[in-house]
Amino acid sequence: MRFAAPRDPVMVADWVSFNVIDVEKQDWARGWASLKKFTERELHARVPYGHKEGPYPLGQWVAEQRRAYGAGQMTGVRARRLEKLGMVWSLADERFQENLEAAKAYYDEHWALCAPRSATMLDRPVGQWLSNLRRPGALADHPEWETALKAVDENWNPEWPAEWQRNYAAVREMTAEESVLVYVEPGVTVHGMDIGRWTAKQRQPTVWRALTDGQRERLVQLGITPLPPALAPETLAAPSTAAVSAFEKGVAALVQYKARTGSVTVPRGHVERLEDGSEVKLGVFLSNTKTRRAKLTVDKLAALAGLGLEWAAA
């Protein structure tokens, strides 16, 4: 009768440990490789729980990594490797990042994150989401979220009403090029907002005095200043004489340009110098006048059409 040789318990423990750890390492490496493939294709690491990368249950694996990280059972090396792939540890953070992408898309189109509550973007209620985050204390536990929002729009949560910021942002974009401000007359609308009338209202002495220092500073940077009291009553009733004069100068510049070149096709960056020494950004004038042609009077359209601008005659 033969007896099995006694086994060294230390050796057995080492053998079991090596094989178990090796298998676990292999599985983790397989999950990491699958996640890397997913992120390279989708450009993010937000894997749905039920998603499989080929036959591999990647969504479940990612959920397990979040659990291990939250329980303090993950090494720093693994955590860093996952973070380099864009891993989001918190589900709340994941939802924030998804909504942030929608907010960025909204900003690209509207130039501000002060969206009305009804606003949607990328099939997400971005307006209500931003409104919720503006509530006092909403970001107390997530300062990194506020940093991310400010990186998109420094004034996403202004001290003044969000509606004011929306109008200001629209005027700011309209006046990004020099000399355009004079064409922002009552009736000029952007995204449904009458920014011409809004601008005229800000210039009223009583309204101007009610603004905060920050609001007045922003308006002055755009060249918007308060009207002298004597001019205030008639401002909202009709376009200013400065706007009419600017149109007439634009037409005079076009007449001069056409006489010299025989064409009314003007490069956008072209500046025409008139006989009185003044300069007109003729390309900008024509581009912006065409944009707001629906707001031009019959006389103005006729003057432009008479010079050969087909869009004015249409």
Rank of each mutant, 00 (worst) to 15 (best):
R117A: 04
V88F: 00
W28A: 13
A151C: 04
T261R: 06
L139W: 00
E53A: 06
V264G: 00
T206R: 14
V190H: 08
D14N: 09
L222Q: 06
R46S: 11
A63Y: 05
A313T: 09
W156I: 03
A259R: 05
V264I: 07
V284E: 09
L139E: 11
L122V: 02
T261K: 00
V171T: 14
P125Q: 10
T206A: 07
Y56H: 10
R268Q: 14
V20Q: 15
A71W: 03
W129H: 04
N288K: 07
E83M: 11
F247T: 06
E275W: 01
L236Y: 01
Q165N: 15
L91E: 15
Q204R: 01
K258P: 01
V251E: 01
A102F: 03
N157Q: 05
T39E: 07
G262A: 04
V284L: 09
A313K: 04
R2Y: 15
P186S: 04
E217A: 11
E83G: 15
W89A: 14
G86S: 04
L113R: 03
L236F: 01
T147L: 08
M11L: 14
Y168A: 09
T199P: 00
D153S: 05
W145G: 13
Q65R: 15
V298D: 13
P161S: 04
W15R: 08
V20P: 14
L122N: 11
L122W: 05
A148G: 09
R7G: 02
E144Y: 03
H270D: 09
T289N: 08
A302Q: 11
R197I: 02
F285D: 03
D153W: 00
A243V: 00
A4W: 05
V12Q: 08
G31E: 01
P57I: 07
A246V: 01
N132G: 01
Y257S: 07
R268D: 14
T206Q: 09
R134M: 07
A312N: 04
G262V: 02
E310F: 05
D141L: 06
A170F: 03
A5F: 13
G192R: 02
V47E: 00
F18L: 12
E40H: 06
L149A: 08
V152A: 12
T206D: 11
S179L: 12
V184R: 03
K290L: 12
Y106N: 06
R260E: 13
C114E: 02
R78H: 14
E53I: 05
D299W: 08
R67H: 12
L309F: 01
V88K: 01
L91S: 15
W89Y: 04
K104N: 15
L301N: 09
W160H: 08
P6F: 12
G283M: 12
E178D: 10
A259Q: 06
E234W: 04
R80F: 14
R46Q: 13
E24G: 10
G50K: 13
E109P: 03
Y69A: 14
R95P: 14
